[in-house]
Simulated assay, not measured.
Amino acid sequence: MSQPLTVSLRILDKEYQVACPPEERYNLEEAARHLDATMRDIRNRGKVIGLERIAVMAALNISHEMLISKRQQQQLSGEQQQQINELNQRLDQALARHQE
């Protein structure tokens, strides 16, 4: 296992030092860019004032996006399982006809 490294992240004009495994650096930086963009968008709309409130709103927005994506993925998995079940039924029927 590799040693963690310290990564400098800039979010809403503030710098943060975060330790992470080297293989996760890109994902961490990508997450920070996404968070920064979300927070800037909220700040630029001008309806939320204060860094803490902006951060909470960004966290809520990102969590909402994640939950929607997760539900869509689960729904797809359910649809795929249904298709597999239907194919299995067709195969069973075809095999049953062939054995008669």
Rank of each mutant, 00 (worst) to 15 (best):
A59H: 00
A32M: 03
L12Q: 10
Q93L: 04
P4G: 05
A58F: 01
R45G: 01
H64N: 11
P22G: 11
R90T: 04
Q82M: 01
M39Y: 02
I49N: 08
M1D: 06
L87K: 02
R90C: 04
E23A: 08
A19Q: 15
N44L: 06
I42K: 04
R25S: 06
V48Y: 09
S77Y: 01
L35D: 00
Y26R: 07
V18R: 06
M39K: 01
Q93W: 03
A94P: 01
I62E: 15
N85D: 13
R90N: 13
T38F: 00
K70H: 15
T38V: 05
L28D: 00
G78W: 13
R40H: 13
S63T: 14
A59C: 07
Q72Y: 13
V56Q: 08
S8V: 07
G46H: 12
I62A: 02
Q89M: 03
E65F: 05
Q17W: 13
P22H: 11
D13S: 10
L5G: 06
R90V: 04
V7R: 06
Q74H: 12
D36L: 07
R43H: 15
T6I: 15
N44H: 08
D41Y: 07
L12G: 06
L60M: 14
L5K: 15
L76D: 14
K14T: 08
M66V: 11
V18N: 05
M57I: 13
H34F: 07
L60D: 03
L76K: 12
Q89Y: 00
A19I: 09
R97F: 04
E100K: 10
Q82A: 05
L87R: 00
Q74D: 09
H34W: 04
I49H: 03
Y16N: 14
I11E: 09
E23V: 04
Q3Y: 12
L95S: 10
Q93F: 01
V7K: 06
N27K: 12
P21W: 10
N27Y: 13
R25D: 04
M39T: 00
I49P: 00
R40W: 09
L28G: 03
H34D: 12
A96L: 14
I68E: 07
L28C: 04
I49D: 01
A55E: 09
L91V: 09
Q73M: 14
